[in-house]
């Protein structure tokens, strides 16, 4: 399998494909009122790959789903999201449907439960093509076959008429990817697409995604808590903590020069090659209760470098280098 080398980040002059400004999401009902995303801003160029890195509950999935306005009914959202010229948060439902699956599409974490168990793989892919492109069933089925071949499903013809439960986990995730790519999206969202898979299959799926991303050139946002995954696929990384981007930059910038104590902690607590025998460090404490976030930096209670001004106000996004910033009072 040919794999192209990692792309370098190119500061692009053209308008970005995605711009997100001060995105805030809270889940509110009679029983709870929890802010999950607290002012996230970023932009993403065409063909760029961004990794959202963070622990469970840090708001990375919700941030990503915001790009197709895929929220539970309890979500209260504010901010601005523009994807390919569409004001996502302001679109009518029918316009939104025209964008979902066509301009922005999504790969979910668990392919077993994310595919409809009582429809064949082929019909689930074809349905998307028919719906968005007005293709005839025959054309749509032909496209489904091409897509299964594109994602390297062996004996694709036979797999078209298979049901999700008849495929292995890896093949199911390939089918899920084929479904996401059905209408040639400009932005692909991948929500921990390898987490539910066996280790060997994880690598295959990652390589496949990277290859497809290069081949088709779509912008991609990866949500993961796995630094290895991030290094493998990302041009840029954004580290999330308690609903905020605490650090963002190119993958090399963040890996070589982690500037936020949380990022540093993450890197230290990850298994690297050739460090056998070296004790892994953990980040002390546990993530904060989102319903009662501390004033100031959310990471302050767990931070080894905490200073009095950390708890005064949320640190602003300080520049570390070109395209590299961190929300920490120690920076700049």
């Amino acid at each position: 399998m040919q794999i192209s080398p990692l792309k370098q980040t190119l500061p692009s002059a053209e308008t970005p494909l995605v711009t997100v400004e001060d995105l805030r999401v809270r889940f509110r009902s009679r029983d709870f009122n929890v802010p999950v995303v607290n002012g996230v801003s970023f932009s993403l160029g065409k063909g760029e790959v961004l990794c959202l890195l963070g622990e469970s509950g840090s708001g990375k999935s919700v941030t990503m789903r915001a790009l197709m306005r895929l929220f539970p009914s309890t979500a209260v959202v504010s901010g601005k999201i523009n994807v390919d010229g569409h004001d996502i948060l302001g679109l009518s439902r029918s316009k939104l449907r025209a964008i979902r699956g066509a301009v922005v599409s999504m790969i979910f974490q668990e392919p077993m439960t994310s595919l409809d168990p009582v429809f064949t793989i082929g019909s689930q892919i074809a349905e998307s093509v028919m719906f968005h492109e007005g293709a005839s069933r025959r054309q749509a089925e032909l496209r489904a076959l091409e897509l299964l071949e594109l994602v390297q499903v062996p004996s694709a013809k036979r797999r078209l008429i298979a049901y999700p439960h008849e495929l292995s986990g890896g093949l199911r995730q390939r089918a899920m990817i084929a479904l996401a790519l059905a209408c040639r999206p400009k932005l692909l969202l991948a929500d921990e697409p390898t987490t539910a898979l066996d280790a060997t299959v994880q690598i295959q799926i990652l390589l496949l995604l990277r290859e497809l991303q290069h081949e088709l050139g779509m912008a991609t946002i990866f949500v993961t808590h796995d630094l290895g995954v991030a290094c493998e696929v990302a041009d840029r990384v954004a580290v999330m903590y308690a609903g905020r981007f605490v650090e963002q930059g190119s993958i090399t910038q963040v890996m070589d020069n982690p500037s936020h104590p949380y990022t540093q902690g993450l890197l230290r607590s990850t298994v690297h090659e050739g460090v056998r025998g070296v004790r892994l460090e953990t980040i002390p404490g546990s993530p904060p209760d989102l319903a009662e976030l501390p004033a100031g930096c959310s990471f302050a209670p767990r931070c080894g470098f905490v200073r009095p001004d950390c708890t005064m106000a949320v640190p602003h996004d300080a520049t570390v280098g070109q395209g590299h910033s961190a929300r920490c009072v120690l920076v700049g």
Binding site: I99, R100, S105, M106, F108, T113, L115, F131
Partner: peptide
């Protein structure tokens, strides 16, 4: 409530589909 319903919405399908 099952997850695949979310996939259907993410595909942009109409409420009827």
């Amino acid at each position: 409530k099952q997850e695949f319903v979310q996939t259907l919405h993410a595909k942009g399908l109409s409420p009827f589909r």
